[in-house]
Simulated scan of single mutants.
Amino acid sequence: MGASVTIRLALRDWDYLTPLLLGEVRSERFDVQITRVGTLLPSVEGQHAFDGAELSFSGYVRRRARGNRGEYGVPYFLMRGFRHRCILVRQDATLGRIADLAGRRIGVTGWPDSGNSWTRALLRREGVDLEQVSWYAGRLTDAHPVVDRLSGFGRPGWLEAAPDERSLMSLLADGFLDAVFTPFLPAGFYDSGSAFRHLLPDYRTHELTYYREVGYVPGMHLLVLSPDIVSRHPDLPAELCCLLARAKALWLAKRFKYADTTPWVLDDFATIARNLRPEWDDGGVEINRTMIADFLAELHVQNILAEPMDVSDIFP
């Protein structure tokens, strides 16, 4: 057998990558080298240090819409998640339903971001007119950098940058904002005496209802490769999907066996087994077609895409 081909990937520090990082899951053809990154790369085009990366689903779609063909999207979603849990309010807020956000001031950590787009879709499902909400984009906490989070979508009086470059959580604490959308919870969120809570305290019930209605867990990040590496190794996308699936299966098996790492992880396994189909996290176009199509439709309705796009436009 010849020497394996080195494939360099930039991925978030997901726990299920551990078997790949430790060499417990390997490919006979490819030597997959993973660099763990805290911030997603903007694109793989022109990235000489990597052959592929975990990228924003929304960002990839928007580049495809602009005619960019310098990336090869693989329909394997490295990050999925329900978004009901991602709406934060103050402990003393009278808000308790998604519909209560109508006409409010809401902060987002990035306007076109995949997760925030899915969260806004929840508002639309509950009849909230996004045009009647006052939106502010900014950093989540003071520890996060001040960067452009409008991405060209700003509109005075409707979507603006957070005032004075203040963090969203400080604006929420002061009462300027009524709610904040965030993919990751701020440090100390669950501490005793925290000033913040989830809009929906029993968010799991709402998420399970949503899953029964739509049939999927929304995808936020996907694997994107350089077209050049794919042209030289056409079997690479399928091999990487297989490796990632094997790594996740092994990691979950260990989590099930060594369940005492957290007190109630077995309850999560039981809830998933009772409510989600076994293939809920599988990669591939067909099994994810409804989710992908719904996301494309949302991006168009929310004016993030100027024109409608089909699943085949994203994964030809």
Results as ranks from 00 to 15, higher is better:
137 A>Q: 09
159 L>M: 15
130 L>R: 04
119 T>P: 08
171 L>D: 00
172 L>V: 01
155 R>M: 08
145 P>F: 05
120 R>D: 06
132 Q>I: 09
160 E>H: 14
126 E>K: 11
130 L>V: 07
123 L>E: 09
149 R>M: 07
172 L>G: 11
113 D>N: 12
135 W>D: 09
123 L>V: 02
116 N>I: 15
120 R>L: 15
144 H>I: 06
163 P>Q: 13
172 L>E: 14
170 S>M: 12
144 H>Y: 05
160 E>W: 11
118 W>E: 06
141 T>K: 04
157 G>N: 14
153 F>Q: 09
163 P>R: 14
160 E>L: 13
143 A>S: 11
155 R>Y: 05
142 D>C: 08
126 E>P: 04
166 R>S: 03
128 V>F: 05
160 E>C: 11
116 N>C: 14
114 S>C: 01
114 S>M: 10
124 R>S: 07
130 L>I: 13
147 V>D: 07
166 R>M: 05
147 V>W: 11
122 L>K: 01
133 V>Q: 09
149 R>L: 11
132 Q>H: 06
120 R>F: 13
134 S>Y: 14
131 E>G: 15
124 R>G: 05
168 L>Y: 10
160 E>F: 10
117 S>D: 10
152 G>D: 05
163 P>L: 09
143 A>Q: 01
115 G>Y: 02
160 E>M: 14
116 N>M: 10
170 S>Y: 02
170 S>A: 15
141 T>Y: 00
132 Q>T: 10
122 L>H: 06
148 D>M: 07
135 W>R: 07
119 T>D: 06
168 L>G: 12
130 L>C: 11
160 E>G: 02
120 R>G: 08
157 G>L: 12
172 L>M: 14
126 E>I: 00
124 R>A: 02
154 G>Y: 06
169 M>H: 05
130 L>M: 07
157 G>C: 14
128 V>R: 01
157 G>Q: 15
130 L>P: 04
131 E>T: 13
156 P>D: 03
143 A>G: 03
163 P>H: 14
171 L>S: 12
122 L>A: 03
164 D>G: 00
138 G>I: 07
115 G>Q: 10
159 L>I: 13
138 G>Y: 02
128 V>Q: 10
121 A>Y: 10
156 P>W: 12
152 G>H: 04
125 R>L: 02
165 E>G: 03
134 S>V: 12
